[in-house]
Amino acid sequence: MTAVLLLVNGVGLLSFWLSVEFSTPTIQLASEIQQGHSENIVCNIPRLKVRDSTSPHRNISLSRGPDVLSSNNNKSSLEYSFVADLQKDDRTEIICEAYVQVGSEVLRKQTRRVLNVVASPFNVSVSANRERYKTNENIKVTCNATGKPFPEFSWHLPSTEGVEFSDNNRTIEISSAQSSHNGTYLCLANNIYGKKSARVDIVFEESTRSWIAAVVVVTLLAVLITAGVVLYRCQK
C-alpha cells in the first residue's frame, strides 16, 4: 500500500511539474546605487504558464535579509522603491522569492543579489590638537570623512613650510610652528562621486615673554633717549 501511495504521489508531482512552466525569478537592480538617491528594485517572474485550465495561485516577495520589503499575490512582478543608505544597505542581500500553487502542489524558486551602495564624501570634519598656538609649539590637524570609494584628501594651508603629511594625507603635523602658520586649514575630501570640504582656523598668539621683552626694550630706549637729551642740555 505504501509503495502504491508513493507511486501515486510521484506521478502526481511529475504531472504537476510537466504542466507548469515556471522560470526562476529575476531581480532588476542597478550595479551601483548612490547614497541618498531614490532607487527601484524590480522582482519579476519572466515566464509562468500552466497547461491545464486550472488557475494557479502565485505570490512574489522581496526581502532584505530577514526583513520582507514587499509582497504581492497573483501578480508576476513586484517593484520596491527606497532611498539608499551606505551604512545600512551596502553589501546586504536582496532576495526575490516566488511560488506557484496549483491544487495542493506548490513550487518555489528564488534569486539573490547583493546591494552595492556608493557615496560621495560625507561626514567630513577637521580636528586640531590646538586652535591657538605660540612660537615653536606643535600643531597636528586631522581630516575625517566617510565615502565609497574611500575619499582621497588634499589641503589648502596658510604655509607648507615645515608641514609633514601622513596617513594617506589625512593628517598634517608641524613640529615647530611659526607665525606664518596662522590661518585657515581647509581639508578637501574627494572621490569619483563628488567632493566636500571642512576647515578649522588656527590662531597664532605672541608669548607673554615676547611682549615683556618688547616692553623692556622700549622702556630702556626711552630712558636712554631721555638721558641723552638731559646730558646734551647740561653740556650747553
Rank of each mutant, 00 (worst) to 15 (best):
Q87F: 13
N116P: 00
A98Y: 11
C143T: 03
S53W: 11
S104V: 08
I192Y: 11
L221H: 01
S176M: 12
N73R: 11
I192N: 12
T54E: 12
L69G: 04
A30L: 08
R47W: 12
P66R: 08
L48C: 06
Y99V: 00
N40S: 15
D67G: 00
P149Q: 09
S77L: 02
F16R: 06
L5G: 00
E32N: 14
M1E: 12
N74G: 09
N116Q: 09
S23D: 13
K196V: 04
A214R: 15
Y185M: 01
H57S: 14
S63C: 03
D67E: 14
T171E: 13
A119V: 07
I172Y: 03
V4D: 08
N129I: 01
R130L: 05
R112P: 00
Q34L: 15
Y80W: 15
S15W: 13
A84Q: 03
L62Q: 05
L29G: 03
L86T: 08
T160Q: 14
N144D: 07
G36Y: 08
N74C: 03
L157S: 05
N138A: 03
A213I: 12
G162E: 03
C96H: 11
K196R: 15
K75D: 14
L220P: 01
E206K: 12
T208F: 14
R130E: 05
M1K: 11
P46K: 07
I41T: 07
S207I: 10
I94M: 13
C43V: 12
D167R: 11
A198N: 05
V218M: 13
N168G: 07
R170Q: 15
E164W: 03
N73P: 01
Y232W: 14
R209P: 00
V216L: 13
S166M: 06
R170F: 05
Y193S: 02
T184H: 07
K88Q: 14
A84V: 13
N182C: 13
T111K: 03
F204A: 01
C96G: 06
N116I: 09
V218W: 10
N144S: 11
Q87T: 02
N116V: 14
R132M: 06
S53L: 10
R132V: 01
V102N: 09
P149W: 15
E173G: 01
S127Y: 02
N9V: 15
S81A: 12
S19N: 15
L14K: 08
K75G: 07
E39M: 10
S81Y: 03
T135W: 02
V100S: 07
K109L: 12
V106S: 08
L157H: 07
E173T: 10
N73E: 15
Y232N: 15
F82R: 06
T135Q: 07
H57D: 13
G36I: 10
G10L: 12
N72P: 00
G183E: 01
L62E: 07
H57K: 14
R47P: 00
G147V: 04
L7H: 05
E137D: 11
R199E: 11
K148W: 14
A3H: 08
T146D: 11
S159F: 07
E32I: 12
N9M: 14
E97H: 13
I139Q: 04
